[in-house]
Structures are given as structure tokens and as C-alpha cells.
Design a protein around this nucleic acid. Structure first.
Lengths: 296, 296
DNA sequence: TCGATTGATGCCTTCTTGTTATCACCGGGT
DNA sequence: ACCCGGTGATAACAAGAAGGCATCAATCGA
């Protein structure tokens, strides 16, 4: 069975007009060629598709079934071609994105939402991971792009800042300092600290240590948790305080107060990071999107 | 865009082997022809589907997308051809069937079940109607085949008996006659009768009148209902009795007793009835089925 | 560095596809 | 009753596309 699309197009034209001459005209074709094409098709299928009364043409029941099938077949072909073109231009495919607590608390959700609206045919696969973990995942191509905490020291990685957070103090609501509109960093010198575990938060822990050192103290760590939610939970349990980023303001948790941190102007930058993107790839689409449609 | 299936077949062959020479061999084709075919396809699509390293061939992401699309496209084409063939042989299509109370209480459900298993691609459309109504529907082609109560007096209609029922007495459970294992017909002579309305049951009413007349009485009708369920409902309400067919045994209704009717050997025949079926039609399939796979 | 293997290219052949001219058939108008 | 306009089918021929053969350039492995 070596049916060709030409024959199907011919058949559809005839099925539409129920008139060989007009159908041939629509196909920019002489009528005899059309007659033979249809005959061949019928022979190849082993099915008579049209009933010719030498005066009027009508579809047989089988012809009607075949017409419906061919109709959606042609639609599917167009769709397939369209998708291939989209895939080539990077508008269709899969994109694996890594993210940190800070990114997902900050600009990332909005970015993703807008990107998915702009490119609905791109499947996004999200993976949580520390900055260190994500840079490794980038290297072995487990993810296409990472949202990590600066600085990024890796070769062949391009970065683009997408978020800049000031520090905030996070306290139990009942804590005396929670009465103030702003907490000075040195007021926290003697407080018990709750921070993220080294395995996942080493990057931020370095920033935090540096910040406290500048303020003249080293934080007394009494508890560690795996993520922001865990840290906040321990704080609401009155176990201590922490210094976090203003993006945490998106977390609403009863029993926890967030206050601007005075005595420092330092900020933490979250950046997108990726290996060189080949032109026309899904990744390059995403990077373009990040650069042209930045913070919203 | 005048892509041909030949090109798609060629592309699929290459996508499978990732080797032009072997693919060409599979297609019973020289390698250069294949190269040109694929080039043409890529040009027509405006998409590069394959990455040739002059040493190894691999699919581009777009090529992968296109391959998947083409794969299901070819499947759909085969399926469409298969369906057309089925439609031609009457194994696919729509069949409108009419039925009476007696038919649906008797053999029809079993017949339909077995037919649908044998021909799963035939849509069956069922319509309830009296014998009279169904013969009219046959005439105007609203139904393809009818299951009616004999006799059938209509021109150009073929009939095939499918069911033969003896009469039964139907009584309230509390009725004295319900104590007996069998009820004699003349014992019902003075009982109040509940029967179907003339508009729908005229055919059976004639049979019933003839039966009673032979037994020497004319039934005293006190209530009429539209269908068997209605009749049985009124009987369970102790409003009277009726003479029905043994197929009604399939109805289980508390408060109603069904007993063989003595004093007569008459039967009522239910038959399939249809207009001449053109060969290869869905109807002819069904008729063949009825004749070869009868009562089971 | 050389040989083997890959896909691409140029040229020619072949066969499919399409065109023109014509036929047989049917319906409607005169 | 007849003819004319329109239908799809057929035959012979022309055009073009698809395929085959010989060969090239690039790459990999020994």
C-alpha cells in the first residue's frame, strides 16, 4: 500500500465538491488526471469511495468514513509540521530549571508564569537544589538553567542577575525586638541563631558569616533546618532568630515577625546561570525572555 | 507545502536506522535518492530534521518532534484505511434498531450483546416502538430493522422469527389463583383485566382477544397502561390480572406472581423485519448474524 | 597516513504524473 | 422527439519528478 498524500488531497477535493471537474480546477489539475488518481486510490485501498451515476457523484458510506479520517489526517500533518517548526525555533520542547529557596520565594514564580503564557508548548521541569548542587547539575546537563545565589565561580557559565534582596531580621512575634519597626544587626549579636544546614545552605552561610563579622560578632547557632519553612517553624516555636532575605516576606507564618535589618546595606543577588546556549534552542528562548522581559 | 508520504516514509526509515545507506536499503532504494528526498523534505518544512556529522547522523530536537508526529500519522493512516475497508464490508457504521416490549424482554438483549462483541465498530441506536410504529419507521428508513410481533402485513418486508412465547397468567401474589402451580385460562374469565393501551398494544390486544374468545369469554378490562412495567405495577397494586408472555419472566417484581397458563398451546412469535438489504451494508451484516447465530 | 565508510552531488534514465482530445452517458429545455 | 450542455472515463502523448550510477569530500579508525 503506497498511498500518497497527493491522492488524499485529490479525494478530499472531490469529496468536498462532489464534482470531478470543479475539484480538478481547485487542484489546478486537469479532470482526467483526477479521475485516474481517485481510481488508483480506490484500487489501492480496495474500497469504492465514490458512487458515480454518470450524472452525480456521491460518497459511499465507506467514502464518508475515509473522508473523515483523511480530514483529521491532514490536520494532524499540518500540526506536526507546525510543531516541528516550533521545536526548531525553540518554542517547543523541554526546559529543566533549577532553583533555590530564594529564587522560588522571589521573582521566579512570576517569571515562569509569564514565560509559560508566552511559550505554552514548552514543558518546564523544576528541580530544587542548592547553588552548589545546581552548578553540578548544569555541568552534567541535568538542568538547562539554574537560579542560584551569587557569586558563581564556575567556568563557562553565563550569569544574569534577576533578583536583589536586602537582609531582614526574622524573630518570634513575642520577642522584644519585634516591637521595633527596624532591628539593628548588632542587637542580634547575643541572640540564638537558627540557620540552614551546611549541606544545602553553605553559600548563604558564608554571606551570613561575613555580614555578622562586619557587625563585630559571630552568630551563635543553636539549631539548623533544611529549608526556609523549617527555619521559620523553629522561630515560631520561639527557639531563636535568624537573618534572612526580604524575599521571605512572601512567607506568611503566624508567630513570626519580619523586620528590616539596620546597620548594613549589603544585598544578596540571585542570578540565572547557564552554559552557552545554542541558537534556536529552548534555552536560548528562555534566556532571551529573561533579558527582554526582566522584572515585570 | 506539498509534502508526500513517500518523504515521510523515507524520513522514518532514516530516523530509525540513523544511517542513510541502511535506510535506503530497507526502502529498496539507492542512497542518493534518499539523501535528496530528505533534503527536499527539510526544505519544504523549513526545518532541519537531521544533524549530519559526515560520520554519524542524529535527530535534531525538531526532528525528534517531527518523527513522533509522523509515526502516529502513519498509524492513523493505516487505521483510517482499515476503517474504510470495514465500512465497506459493513463491519463499521450505524444501525438503527426498533424493538417492542416483548423483544426487549426476550432474546434481543442477548442478540445485541453478542453482535456488539462480534462487530465492535458498529454503533447501535435503539428505538422503542409498537409493531405498527416500527413498520412505519422502516418504511421511511428511520430504522434499519425492527423487532415486532407477528403477523407482519407490509409489502417488501422480510421477516425472520427470533422468539416464540407461550402465554402466562400474571396475578397479584395475594390472589387465590397464585397458590396454584398453573392457572387455567377459563379461571380468569371473571377477573378484572389490566392490559396495554390500544395506541401501543393493538397488535397484542388482537391476539389476546382471540385467545379469550377461544376460551369462551371476553376479558373485562378495568385499567390500561403504556408498557409492561406499568401493567405489572397495577397488578402489584391488586387492581387486576393480565395474560402476558413467558418472556415477562425476566421481570422480577415483588407482589406479582407469574404462572403458566393452561388450556391453550398458542404462542406469540416475535420476528425481525427489514427492507431488502444491499450487500455489504451494515444491515446485511446484522441479518447474516441473526441467521447464522440464532437463539444461542 | 592511508583505507574504509559516511552522506552529498552531477548526470542520465525511467517511470510516474499530468495534459489534450475524445468518447459514452445522462438530463433538461425547446 | 431531439439536441445541447455537462458529467466522468479513456487513450495517446508530453513533462517532470523520482531513482540509479558514478563519483566526491569529509571523517574516523588502524
Amino acid at each position: 500500500m503506497k498511498i500518497e498524500l497527493r491522492q488524499i488531497r485529490q479525494f478530499l477535493a472531490v469529496a468536498e465538491t462532489l464534482n470531478f471537474r470543479r475539484a480538478a480546477e481547485n487542484l489546478a489539475l486537469a479532470q482526467p488526471a483526477l479521475s485516474r488518481g481517485i481510481q488508483l486510490l480506490e484500487h489501492q485501498l480496495g474500497v469504492s469511495l465514490l458512487k458515480r451515476n454518470n450524472r452525480r457523484v456521491e460518497l459511499t458510506p465507506a467514502g464518508e468514513v475515509f473522508r473523515n479520517g483523511c480530514y483529521s489526517l491532514m490536520k494532524d500533518l499540518e500540526e506536526t509540521a507546525r510543531k516541528a517548526r516550533k521545536a526548531q525555533s525553540g518554542e517547543l520542547g523541554r526546559l529543566a530549571i533549577g532553583y533555590t529557596d530564594f529564587a522560588i520565594s522571589g521573582v521566579l514564580p512570576g517569571v515562569l508564569d509569564r514565560f509559560r503564557r508566552a511559550f505554552p508548548d514548552i514543558d518546564i521541569e523544576l528541580t530544587y537544589g542548592s547553588t552548589r548542587q545546581q552548578l553540578d547539575d548544569l555541568a552534567i546537563r541535568r538542568i538547562d538553567i539554574a537560579f542560584v545565589t551569587k557569586p558563581v565561580d564556575a567556568f563557562g557559565i553565563t550569569t544574569l542577575p534577576v533578583q536583589r534582596d536586602r537582609f531582614v531580621a526574622v524573630l518570634p512575634s513575642a520577642h522584644p525586638l519585634a516591637q521595633l519597626a527596624q532591628v539593628e544587626i548588632r542587637d542580634l549579636a547575643d541572640e540564638p541563631f537558627i540557620v540552614g544546614v551546611m549541606a544545602r545552605w553553605s553559600h548563604y552561610r558564608r554571606h551570613l558569616d561575613a555580614l555578622c563579622l562586619k557587625a563585630g560578632f559571630s552568630p551563635r547557632i543553636v539549631q539548623e533546618a533544611y529549608n526556609t519553612e523549617g527555619i521559620f517553624g523553629l522561630i515560631s516555636a520561639n527557639m531563636g532568630v535568624t537573618i534572612h532575605l526580604e524575599c521571605a516576606a512572601n512567607y506568611v507564618r503566624s508567630g513570626v515577625a519580619i523586620r528590616p535589618l539596620g546597620g548594613t546595606d549589603d544585598t544578596i543577588v540571585t542570578a540565572a546561570a547557564w552554559r552557552p546556549a545554542e541558537p534556536g534552542s529552548v534555552l536560548s528562548r528562555f534566556v532571551d525572555f529573561l533579558q527582554t522581559v526582566p522584572a515585570e
